[in-house]
Nucleic acid binder design. Structure first.
Length: 429
DNA sequence: TGCCATGATTACTA
DNA sequence: TAGTAATCATGGCA
């Protein structure tokens, strides 16, 4: 486009000065009235050059006059020849460009999010991912989901409105340029290919705007999505009943040392469909709150003690092992649920109820049961002050300082080599 | 709506 | 770095 004035200038020089390069049809116009014709051409060119300085009406009138001018065909031929020489330089630019990979990525993302393409209830994927990430407790997230979907729908609407505007503007501008070029083709040679090329240039320019729109939309969707997921993840949700039961069961059955190992935490996390961090949080909170208000947890402890006892009885009568995550530093195989407290295999429960229970080979679950029962018993007869000789249970749990002892784990408290009838070291207190 | 329970966060400690 | 203690924020219930 911007080379047009240059072409005009060069031609002006040629046409008016009778340059050797002057086309034959104009050279042939020499003779008696040659000067007059040259003058005419000069006038025409002058008019063309100044046409942009004029008002629209004036320019229209001038344009019409030019179109009707007798020298117009000659000028047109000159321009055709100049065009022939220069058109070679623009051929290379007409090659088809491959689709922009970034644009393709944006398109794919918008399609995946349901922003472009057919509406598909966008947000379902994000919602599902969030629900999964929050440990399967996302069943009641419908409010967030609908909010997310509503906002996504807004984005979609804005995107389509803007896209429509863009397409409309692009079409309008293209039509305008094409009309302009067609109009100009009356005074200068413009091939359909050139018009096509011009249209593709316009489309490319508009494509960059479209890309910006898509980019902004993608950003908006990503921000919305991350906020939605963040909110979902951050929001406190009570663990489901089953998860709490599992955690409590573990806590009360390992009351002597309620510090699950990493493996145990992982196992609990898996069973409860929560994260390991949540398990850690839960145990942290539980230990503190239990210690602060033991009395309050009495009933709960009793309940789990009874339950654990029943489970243990069932398990031992069936010769099976309880499926309970291992405690830290357990003598059993790491990460294994069974027999983690093998050191308590031969344990006398005599100290618990006064009845002799010599030689009972009980597993880890029974140790847990014992822990809990001891606790319950100790509760009935006092707790922390009860570290006296009369106390049947000196809790491996909370010590005189109000905290669980540092090291003693069930497996370390009782020697695995102790025979039947041996007494748990703690109970000897 | 207030209260309690509870999961999460933060500062601190050993 | 795991655990403690304090605290915050939210859910759930009467």
């Amino acid at each position: 486009m911007d080379e047009q004035p240059r072409l005009m200038h060069s031609h002006t020089g040629v046409g008016m000065a009778g340059h050797p390069g002057l086309p034959q049809h104009l050279e042939g116009t020499g003779g008696a009235d040659g000067d007059g014709r040259k003058q005419d051409i000069g006038d025409i060119l002058q008019q063309i050059m100044t046409i942009t300085d004029q008002s629209l009406d004036e320019a229209q009138a001038r344009k019409h006059a030019l179109n009707c001018h007798r020298m117009k065909p000659a000028l047109f031929n000159v321009l055709c020849e100049i065009k022939e020489k220069t058109v070679l330089s623009i051929r290379g630019a007409q090659e088809e460009e491959p689709p922009d990979p970034q644009l393709m990525r944006l398109d794919n993302m918008l399609l995946a999010e349901g922003v472009s393409g057919p509406e598909k209830g966008g947000g379902s994927a994000a919602a599902a991912a969030a629900a999964a990430a929050s440990g399967g407790v996302g069943a009641d997230n419908s409010a967030e989901h609908s909010d997310y979907r509503a906002k996504l729908s807004q984005i979609r609407q804005i995107y389509h409105t803007e896209l429509e505007k863009y397409e409309q503007a692009c079409n309008e501008f293209t039509t305008h340029v094409m009309n302009l070029l067609r109009e100009q083709s009356r005074t200068r040679p413009i091939s359909p290919k050139e018009i096509e090329r011009m249209v593709s240039i316009i489309h490319r320019k508009f494509s960059s705007i479209q890309m910006q729109l898509k980019q902004s939309t993608c950003e908006a969707v990503m921000i919305l999505r991350s906020r939605f997921l963040d909110a979902l993840m951050r929001k406190r949700r009570n663990f489901n009943k089953q998860a709490t039961e599992i955690l409590n069961e573990y806590f009360y059955s390992h009351l002597s040392n309620p510090y699950p190992s990493e493996e145990a935490k992982e196992e609990l996390a898996k069973k409860c469909a929560i994260t390991v961090a949540q398990v850690s949080n839960w145990f942290g909170n539980k230990r503190i709150r239990y210690k602060k208000n033991i009395g309050k947890f009495q009933e709960e402890a009793n309940m789990y003690a009874a339950r654990t006892a029943v489970n243990a009885a069932n398990a031992s009568s069936h010769g099976s092992q309880a499926n309970s995550p291992s405690t830290p530093n357990s003598a059993g195989s790491a990460g294994s649920f069974n027999m983690s407290n093998s050191g308590d295999l031969f344990m006398s429960v005599q100290s618990l109820n006064g009845d002799s229970y010599q030689g009972a080979q009980v597993g880890a679950n029974v140790q847990s049961q014992v822990d809990t029962l001891r606790h319950v018993i100790s509760q009935t007869g006092g707790y922390s002050e009860g570290l006296t000789a009369n106390q049947m249970y000196s809790p491996q749990g909370i010590n005189a300082n109000g905290g669980w002892p540092d090291a003693p784990t069930p497996s370390s408290v009782t020697s695995p080599t102790e025979g039947p009838g041996s007494v748990h070291s703690d109970t000897s207190n």
